[in-house]
Design a protein around this nucleic acid. Structure first.
Length: 935
RNA sequence: GGGCUGGUAGUUCAGUUGGCAUGAACGCUUGACUUGCACUCAAGAGGUCGGGGGUUCAAAUCCCCCCCAGUCCA
């Protein structure tokens, strides 16, 4: 890892306050302390540089609950001139590179940190609930040092080249003042470790704050961009501090685990449900002191660290495992259910993709934990209700969404139980198969396939398999085996389009922002503008335009430019790069730079798209009303003929729901609601309408454009909209499909296209009615009747076929003359020409009936329709015993009439196309059979 | 977004190298025997082998496309 020179950390603050720089003899890292006797860096980690000494003896002047600590943090920084910002959602909908908000800085990336948009305030302070699922296996064993959800206190300052807010020295001073003055920690008990922080493509030096063995905060000075192996200076240097609000609360309370500090009586209730007797705090304290050493990366590691904890605490390993594991599991349940509550309250629907998959993973883990605790799964819902009450005060959406959260989890439970049930069957069959092969162990290969393809974790396979008496050894490197299965996939390189974009981006540099006339008046169809630049002889940049560039699921406008008294250039595409709009044109003669052009929109197309876009907002609002608050737009594509929106929902849409959505949306059309668009400062928009604004991902900029459709729907949207919903005319939902588990797609048309859609469907009905020769209103009954009749007819056909076969066989075995019969050494050969019938089924039925009566029979049936000839031979057991091999017979005979065939000794069939040679082939077959018998 | 499974009777599933779906179990119907916890016995009904193309004399089986379901990873 890259290191920074020592002077990077030599802050005036340290010197003034008498801090000494030391190197920890255990971990080798440098740290700053006021205590000359401080030998080690003090951090309780696997290097064992220290242990927790805040337990039972908090270093703070008083105990803080989590909300109290949050408030202390926020108000302290407010007093230092920081603006308090409301927490952002835990689902990072404004970013395409990550799903969850895992730090406070995430809120301001990339728009703020890259200088695209100004920060909502500067400096600012926020307490951001953050989710980190990478810490999931450590949640519990580390006594709450790792949590899947925690609050990160972020005090951020964004330093621009022309405007410095504050940097390293002030940052550390603020921290120190907070720790000592606000919380009352003794100054010499705060140790600052030097470090290097790298993450999300950025990097910089950092200072880690250690108090009594625990890292309570990290002060990051983000100033580089990581390019390959190099650190490149960023224009904006960002103070990125992460105060562990939960950890601060923990040390202030001195309780054995962070869970107790966060959850208080909620945790007691969970332990109670788990039937864990009143936990002996003394026991926990003894282990907690050394819990900093624990970090579970692998199963093996866990055992090693446990052993070490046992040595240090003097408690034997068996007791630790027996008493501690259930408690750890209960802690994890408490933590994971909070995470789930937060995620689901923001409309994450458990699914098999993206953040939905993370929710599913989390749920399944909780499910297994509850099972390990011998708890009824239904207790999960009790715990979620507790969480909703507990967090509802500070995060009201959790309380508001409580019922929907429970509903989604119940659906998820059903799905997982189905998976388990299916899995049990699969394991059972595998077990039986193995027993048949005299093996009693499931291979690693099978084990990883069961997990990868069927979602069965190895420990569950083990459980199922052992019921069947089959052994399962879970390999240490199980998950790397699974990973290996995924190795093959390698992504294609960046496509050409991005490269083109890059070259265009540099071409527009320095150009002024294009004036967006389509915002001034969305109904403007013509305009005049001046040409600023022509790029690659095909992209035209104007000073202003009413051509809408592709974005937000709305396709680019088309139309043409007119110039030089009659020259026309088709506008075939419009893209926006930064703040500059490029028109891609097709023309013979280019206009001159600086000249004036007239722009004329393809208004029919644009107006249709406006209807589609406003209609999409109505559908979205209607879906939310019908299905619930968890509904979010997961993507949309407007079109002239059809438009689609993908929404998150945990069940398949029913026809009734689709109709209700359609009805509601059309009611909104008929109500002729006026659509208001306004540019609002980001903070104002967010505080007035909430983060639900970001249906299509967050939008950059200091001000955001809010499109409000009465009280029906509000979205941050850059699209062109109608003045009134009535202009849409009519919305018709044409179809729905499930794009992924948890994502439903609605496809619809608006205006005249909707009328056309209805007409097309009606036409279909008319055609069907005509074909069935039934009146429209009786179509359903007629179809039902016809299907039933067809079914009956098929049954009758089969019955008759059998009857026929029985009769024919009766004829064959005795009296009839239709067959040629011959007896060879006790085997009767029955030869029959089926004429035009080549239905093998019928031949088979007949032959079966004959052989049922007499085992010592060989049937030689043949027939030919206009195209192919067919031969079928069946032999009874006795005949086979005497040497008849039907398969060989056919193999000899079929080539004669230009085909092939085969089968088994007792049955074979063949076919060919040289119809005229059929007789010859039959003769060959007959001779072969005779030869076989006499052998 | 990328991968992997699977779709055959009402249900859970077999179905070898393409060659009879006389498919298995459970469930169902009828009858007999029993009235005690998956009763037993006998007989019977029940299938566009997910859909559409292709290869072949012949496709549940091989190839292509689509649909549906499950699942892992980013």
């Amino acid at each position: 890892m890259k290191e920074f020179p020592a002077e990077t950390y030599a802050l005036p603050f340290f010197k003034q306050e008498g801090f000494i720089r030391k190197q920890c003899p255990k971990c080798g890292e440098h740290f700053w302390t006021q205590d000359a006797n401080q030998e080690y860096c003090g951090e309780s980690s696997s290097d064992e540089c220290g242990c927790y000494t805040f337990l039972k003896d908090p270093p703070t002047k008083k105990r803080f609950t989590l909300p109290e600590m949050r408030e202390a943090f926020l108000s302290f920084f407010e007093k230092q001139g920081h603006t308090r910002i409301k927490p952002y959602p835990v689902v990072a909908r404004w970013r395409s590179d990550i799903y969850l908000t895992h730090a406070s800085i995430i809120d301001f990336q990339p728009y703020v940190t890259e200088g695209i948009a100004p920060p909502p305030a500067n400096p600012l302070v926020i307490s951001q609930p953050s989710i980190r699922l990478t810490d999931i296996s450590n949640t519990g064993p580390t006594f709450g040092r790792h949590l899947t959800i925690f609050e990160m206190g972020g005090a951020h300052a964004f330093n621009y080249p022309d405007k410095e807010i504050y940097w390293k020295d002030e940052t550390v001073r603020y921290h120190h003042e907070f720790a000592t003055k606000v919380l009352g920690i003794k100054s010499e008990e705060v140790i600052y470790k030097e470090g290097v922080w790298v993450g999300g493509g950025n990097a910089g030096p950092d200072v880690e704050c250690i108090v009594r063995g625990l890292e309570v905060g990290t002060l990051v000075f983000m100033q580089y961009k990581v390019v390959g192996d190099e650190f490149v200076e960023l224009p904006i240097r960002t103070v990125d501090t992460g105060y562990g609000i939960d950890r601060f609360a923990w040390i202030s309370q001195g309780v054995p685990s962070c869970f107790q500090a966060i959850y208080g009586d909620l945790l007691d209730k969970v332990l109670d449900m788990a039937n864990i007797a009143k936990v002996d705090d003394e026991f926990l304290f003894r282990i907690a002191k050394f819990s900093g050493l624990v970090s579970v990366d692998k199963m093996a590691n866990r055992l090693v660290t446990r052993r070490r904890v046992s040595e240090l605490s003097g408690i034997d390993l068996a007791t630790i495992d027996k008493v501690l594991i259930p408690i750890e599991n209960a802690w994890a349940v408490t933590d994971h259910t909070k995470t789930l509550s937060f995620m689901l309250s923001e409309g994450v629907v458990p699914s098999n993709i993206q953040e939905g998959y993370l929710a599913r993973m989390l749920f399944r883990r909780v499910y297994r934990l509850l099972r390990n605790l011998n708890m009824n799964i239904d207790r999960l819902y009790d715990i979620v209700e507790l969480q909703a009450d507990y967090w509802g005060k500070d995060f009201p959406q959790i309380k508001a969404m409580r019922d929907e959260i429970v509903e989604m989890l119940k659906v998820e439970q059903e799905k997982f139980e189905d998976t388990l049930k299916r899995g049990e069957g699969i394991v059972k069959r595998i077990a039986e198969d193995l027993k048949g092969k005299n093996t009693c162990k499931i291979s690693d290969e099978t084990l990883s396939e069961l997990y990868d393809s069927h979602g069965l974790p190895p420990e569950i396979v083990k459980e199922f398999a052992e019921k069947e008496g089959i052994k399962v050894d879970i390999p240490e490197n199980f998950f790397s085996l699974v990973a290996k299965r995924h190795m093959q996939a390698n992504k294609l390189a960046e496509d050409e389009q991005t490269q083109v974009e890059h070259s265009l981006a540099s071409a527009v540099e320095g150009l002024p922002p294009t004036e967006q006339l389509y915002y001034t008046d969305t109904y403007m169809r013509e305009f005049e503008a001046t040409i600023l630049k022509i790029i690659n002889n095909e992209f035209i940049v104007l000073n202003r335009t009413c051509f809408y560039p592709e974005g937000g699921g709305q396709p680019a406008d088309h139309g043409y430019f007119a110039y030089d008294g009659g020259v026309r250039a088709e506008v075939v595409d419009v893209q926006k790069i930064g703040k500059v709009i490029l028109h891609k044109i097709k023309t013979e003669t280019l206009p001159k730079i600086g000249s004036t052009v007239q722009g004329i929109l393809d208004w029919e197309k644009r107006y249709a798209l406006m209807k589609a876009h406003t209609g999409t907002h109505l559908i979205n609002g209607a879906a939310r009303r019908v299905l619930g608050e968890h509904v979010w737009q997961a993507g949309t594509q407007k079109g002239v003929e059809t438009t689609r929106i993908d929404i998150s929902h945990y069940r398949r849409l029913t026809h009734a729901e689709v109709h209700r959505i359609e009805t509601l949306a059309n009611e909104a059309v008929l109500a002729n609601i006026s659509v208001e668009t306004a540019w609002l400062p980001r903070n104002e928009a967010e505080s007035r309408y909430g983060f639900r604004l970001y249906q299509g991902g967050a939008v950059p900029g200091k001000d955001i454009r809010v499109v409000k459709t009465g009280n029906w729907d509000v979205e941050a949207c850059a699209g062109t909209h109608l003045r009134n919903t009535g202009e849409i005319g009519y919305i018709k939902i044409r179809s729905t499909e499930r794009v992924q588990d948890g994502v439903e797609r609605l496809v619809y048309s608006v205006g005249m296209q909707a009328v056309k859609a209805v007409q097309a469907q009606e036409q279909l009905l008319w055609t069907v009615a005509e074909v069935l020769n039934a009146p429209l209103e009786k179509l359903d009954k007629t179809a039902e009747r016809l299907v039933k009749e067809l079914r009956d007819a098929n049954l009758e056909k089969r019955r008759l076929l059998k009857e026929l076969a029985t009769k024919e066989s009766a004829v064959a075995s005795g009296i009839g003359t239709a067959d040629v019969q011959e007896e060879i050494e006790g085997v009767k050969l029955i030869k029959r020409d089926f004429g035009e019938v080549t239905d093998v089924n019928r031949m088979v039925q007949t032959a079966n009936e004959i052989i049922k009566r007499n085992n010592a029979v060989v049937t030689l049936f043949y027939g030919a329709d206009g195209k192919t000839a067919r031969i079928m031979i069946m032999a009874g057991d006795v005949a086979v015993a005497k040497g008849v091999n039907a398969s060989d017979v056919v193999k000899f005979a079929a080539p004669v009439f230009g085909g092939g065939g085969g089968g088994r000794p007792n049955f074979a069939q063949g076919g060919g196309t040289k119809l005229e040679k059929l007789k010859e082939a039959v003769q060959v077959a007959e001779e072969t059979i005779k030869r076989q018998i006499s052998h």
